[in-house]
Design a protein around this nucleic acid. Structure first.
Lengths: 371, 371
DNA sequence: GTGAAAGCGCTAACAT
DNA sequence: ATGTTAGCGCTTTCAC
């Protein structure tokens, strides 16, 4: 394998000149540049990553820290990972996947102290995440995927749960629904202070209040069984509900199953909208799920770009960005069957359902836009 | 950050002694070892990854080469990736995720020539995969996930499609099914020579023949719509079918939808078994899918371990291993409703369905074993 | 605009 | 059993 020495020799210049041609750190005359480039091409020269890293103190590697304790990544997380990998690769960086338990702080410190990582992306950020302090101590620039309780001074990208919930609620209310139940993550997750569960809970209450409607919320375990149980509980509590908004991607299939088991059709009797869901998963259901499509890949890309910006320019420009999930209307939502007898709670102004044909056209257009 | 120099100074030994304590490449007396270890602890010393890599010519980084052109990773691939990451991490290695198009050979050559990768894992291997030759030219040890047409001389891990199909067919035949349709990947995939599609096709034919039954096979596009169409075609072709074996993870939900749409119950009228499927996905269906569970995580782990063995000992010990998917019986398979009027094709000896109670017990046991 | 040379922090001969 | 030292291949002063 050719080294920079070889190139310099062949081009009859010094190694430093070759280096400067490569890095562009100082002006090189057109003539020598071409000589050097020709020599590099001739020798099939590729800079040695470790040597360059050692000398420049920049590995051109960023770490993606994913929690180890989870039972695998969901479709959204996977999209995030591949999006990040693609963005890093496009920028000439490498992305290493480092499984580190959220509380395995020693392991994290070790990893960060090896000077192999120019920066790190933190997945599954908790409201109080001890990993942040560790990384900061060691001086590794980082970008959060998610938010800590107080993210001031930290760069992050996260889903805009407020806007996503509001859009979902608007969609259902726009169809004419007034009794809408929100199926959140588990009670345990809420008690643990799991950010998305908390944020969507508040956002749902606010969005419903904005329409003069009473919020109805049920937690569900992250499983089909959890969804079934939650749906049963919801129907017991509000037999007249006409729509379900499900945060819980795992539970939503149980919700559909329970509805089918009780002979309630979707979307005829009950509309179902799934939050933070990938198209692939939404398409699995019958009917395909109207869903708030998670911006997984874009999140990954933006997170990497943000991190690289921190590395290139050392200006401490904090970047905080929220991305909403986009509504994709599929087959699981529609106007409620009967506008009849409500008045049980939150009797407020709700828009009437649009005429069927008009509505159908609208839905088709919305779907097409995303395709 | 402390360097090896600092440690040596504090421990009053030479740098090489510190190095040897770290690498264990030569015997060190108990006394000095302890001095050194103490100094390292005191200084919070961590070896500099790049420096070590440059000097030792081993980066302790392995690459996971995933095709960029795909529309995201499925659950099986994701499990593979995380399994590989965990195994690498456990062995003190790092795993970089490199998205490289299957035909972007220049990019691959560049990547491999940077000397950043000690070895590579190749995902989504094609029957004739040009990436293999590139990696071999550059001298990067590799392990395939999947198999080329002629994998002699190459280490690989792959799913044992033959055994998996046989086990699935045995399960269905054991339940009493005789008219079984195999829903494969798309016709295009078959024409392209997509290995898994080809291998399972032949395995299905063989397994059915082994039971004296006629194989019935239908291709399906990788989508819910593809599954619906395939199911419709299958029913048109063989109205008396009682079981479906689906290779196509995306299509299987369409299959279920089509059956439900036609009022055929699962597993009452038709049993459905899904191939190469993750438990998470299997649980989404109602009823939950009896499935051949893909060994994604184990494949990832074994692939990494195999690769590391190649790196440590330079003996060219080729390692080729096939892992079957394990049958996990859930709710979508059961005995056929009626043994009545078959004799249309492949009239051969088929085991009768076991008595209901006995069978139920067997199924439960099988499930428990895997839990 | 270009070259010479001093490291970057470590490993691995070569010494003793 | 330990120390000395010459690199690993590159970046980056410092000189011209």
């Amino acid at each position: 394998m050719a080294t920079m020495q070889d190139v310099a020799r062949l081009a009859r210049v010094s190694v430093s000149t070759v280096s400067y041609v490569l890095t562009g750190a100082r002006p090189i005359s057109q003539a020598t540049r071409e000589k050097v480039l020709a020599a590099m091409a001739e020798l099939d020269y590729q800079p040695h990553a470790m040597a360059r890293g050692l000398a420049s103190r920049r590995s051109r590697i960023v770490g993606l820290l994913l929690p180890i304790d989870e039972r695998g990544l969901g479709a959204t997380e996977t999209a995030f990972v591949t999006g990040a990998a693609a963005a890093a690769s496009a920028a000439g960086y490498h992305l290493v996947l480092s499984p580190v338990g959220v509380n395995d702080l020693d392991e994290l410190r070790r990893l960060a102290s090896q000077r192999m990582l120019d920066g790190a992306l933190l997945m599954e950020v908790q409201l109080a995440d001890p990993r942040v302090a560790v990384l900061q101590e060691v001086g590794v620039p980082l970008v959060l995927i998610g938010r800590t309780e107080d993210p001031s001074g930290l760069s992050y990208v996260d889903i805009d749960f407020d806007l996503t919930v509001r859009d979902a609620v608007d969609h259902l209310v726009g169809l004419g629904h007034r009794r809408i139940v929100y199926v959140n993550h588990s009670a345990a997750a809420l008690a643990d202070g799991y950010g998305p569960a908390l944020r969507t809970r508040d956002a749902f209450a606010a969005a419903m209040a904005g329409h003069g409607l009473a919020p109805l919320m049920i937690p569900a375990d992250d499983s089909a069984a959890g969804g079934r149980a939650a749906m049963a509980a919801a129907l017991a509590q509000a037999p007249d509900l006409t729509a379900v908004l499900a945060m819980n991607e795992s539970a939503v299939f149980g919700i559909l199953g329970e509805l089918a088991g009780r002979g309630r059709s979707v979307p005829g009797d009950v509309s179902v909208v799934s939050m933070v869901t990938s198209p692939q998963v939404a398409e699995l259901a019958t009917p395909a799920l109207t869903a708030m499509t998670s911006p997984g890949s874009a999140l990954g890309r933006i997170a990497v770009e943000t991190l690289l910006r921190h590395l290139d320019a050392d200006n401490g420009e904090i970047h905080q960005q929220l991305l909403p999930c986009a509504l994709e209307v599929r087959g699981s939502s529609g106007p409620p069957r009967a506008t009849g007898g409500d008045g049980i709670t939150g009797a407020g102004p709700a828009r009437p359902a649009p005429a069927p044909t008009e509505e159908a056209a609208r839905r088709r257009a919305a779907t097409r836009r995303r395709a």
